[in-house]
């Protein structure tokens, strides 16, 4: 992602491929069409269909799914519509959890990336290798392992108890903190890697120049290093925030499937007992809209920093 910013000069590209340029792009368009536009289109259409009894859809236009998202009409559907807070709370909880995960990842990921990027080039790949090792194991298995670690009678509590730090076990499993742990742990490398890519290309003589000009360490970090690696930081934040927002493994396995996040709410509509496809599709569309807003914000930031930079 960070690499995107560096292609400022490529617009004036040569004319080698002349008329066949568009044909050469065709495979990418097909991939985007088949794997992105079509599924999103199906989702959009389904979100406006009528729910069929016991799952499935009837091909009749309906906005019932969006209505259900926004209005609460009581158990029997005949009360005065009131604002439905449930789903707003679920979305707020998801955004909150994703935001915390992003901040935690940034706090740990930035120093880590900086550390790696300032090692001698020969040992950097070894450090990066170490970062990726845990991710050779499937996400599901890592999440279940996390559950084993933090349960009341698990190693974490045993260890703390043996050290005398606590008397009774810290109850983590099936709480929001457990979900947070799962999210943070799952997506940390997505923060480290783009920041590393930015810091690695950072010209450290700039820091030396700032130091020579009597900038303090803190000022140097804030005014020189951070603006230079900002694209990497933003890319990392997006790569952590967006998947955290839609995560369903962590809330399901670590949160006890009791406190929904957006991802588990949507999954329940298709695979679970609820069997309400239009509602699942509508919730997905609302999530997608939110993610798009975040990405648009990012690209605006990006173009602004480019204008400032050149």
């Amino acid at each position: 992602m960070a690499g995107l910013t560096n292609n400022g000069g490529s617009k004036a590209s040569s004319n080698i491929f002349g008329g066949i340029r568009y044909w050469l792009l065709a495979p990418s368009w097909v991939v985007i069409g088949v794997f992105l536009v079509m599924p999103v289109g199906i989702m959009l259409v389904y979100s406006f269909l009528t729910k069929e009894f016991r799952g499935g859809v009837i091909w009749e236009f309906s906005i019932a799914a969006y209505d259900q998202f926004i209005f609460d009409r009581g158990l029997f559907g005949d009360e005065e519509p009131a604002i439905e807070w449930t789903y707003i709370v679920i979305f707020a909880r998801s955004i909150w959890q994703a935001a915390i995960a992003t901040v935690l990842c940034l706090l740990i990921g930035f120093p880590t990336a900086y550390f790696i990027a300032t090692r001698p080039p020969s040992s950097r790949s070894a450090w990066l290798f170490l970062i990726t090792v845990p991710y050779w194991v499937n996400l599901l298995i890592r999440t279940v392992s996390m559950k084993f670690l933090i349960r009341d009678s698990g190693p974490l509590n045993q260890w703390l108890r043996n050290l005398g730090v606590i008397d009774s076990p810290i109850h983590l499993i099936n709480t929001d903190i457990a979900v947070q742990l799962g999210l943070f742990y799952s997506y940390l490398p997505f923060m480290v890697l783009p920041i590393y890519a930015s810091v690695e290309r950072y010209n450290f003589t700039l820091s030396e120049a700032a130091w020579d000009l009597y900038a303090s360490r803190w000022t140097t970090l804030r005014e020189v290093l951070l603006p230079a690696v900002k694209p990497g930081i933003i890319a990392g934040c997006i790569l952590v925030f967006v998947p955290s927002l839609g995560a369903f493994l962590a809330p399901d396995l670590l949160g006890g499937a009791k406190n929904f996040m957006i991802g588990s709410l949507i999954e329940e509509q298709f695979k679970g007992n609820a069997g309400n496809w239009p509602f699942g599709a509508a919730a997905s569309m609302i999530l997608l809209t939110m993610v798009l807003i975040v990405l648009m914000f990012y690209s605006r930031q990006q173009s602004r920093s480019e204008v400032e930079g050149h």
């Binding site: 009894f53 158990l75 029997f76 559907g77 449930t86 789903y87 709410l265 007992n273 609820a274 069997g275």
Partner: peptide, 17 residues
């Protein structure tokens, strides 16, 4: 029947949300 089951579905949805 469908009418009753729809109500049960609503109860379940409210329980799980």
């Amino acid at each position: 029947d469908e009418a009753t089951q729809t109500l049960y579905d609503a109860v379940w949805t409210r329980l799980k949300k």
